[in-house]
């Protein structure tokens, strides 16, 4: 898939949803719990697949997951139990340096 920035993707193995913050030029499949995520407003929304027990690292609400290699960044808007991955490789948490509140 090649979703636009701002699109919501839903997991088909758990409750996870993410918002696309950045997406490179590639056509890619993001998986959660081992199964492809789908457009939360598309025809496949609501479908479910069995989860891969090896892909259960969990997603954390409000965290950003970024793959520098693919230029993809996802913001978790609903947490779940699956692992976010691209091509089977987990998408790492983006480490954000905490910034003091400025406003």
């Amino acid at each position: 898939m090649k979703p636009r920035v701002g699109a919501t993707l839903a997991s088909t193995t758990d409750q996870t949803t993410v918002i696309v913050v950045r997406w490179g030029a590639e056509d890619l499949d993001v998986t959660c719990g081992g199964a492809p995520m789908v457009d939360a407003r598309g025809p496949e929304a609501g479908t479910s697949h069995p989860a891969d027990p090896a892909q259960q690292a969990g997603t954390v609400m409000g965290k950003r997951y970024a793959s520098e290699e693919h230029g993809v960044e996802l913001l978790c808007t609903k947490p779940g139990s699956g692992t976010l991955a691209i091509g089977g490789v987990p998408v790492p948490l983006k480490d954000a340096k905490p910034l003091p509140a400025s406003d």
């Binding site: 920035v5 701002g6 918002i19 913050v21 609400m61 409000g62 808007t77 609903k78």
Partner: peptide, 13 residues
Amino acid sequence: MNITVLLDMAADG
């Protein structure tokens, strides 16, 4: 994306 995403996340979380 819409700024209301931020509100939804606050209300959900």
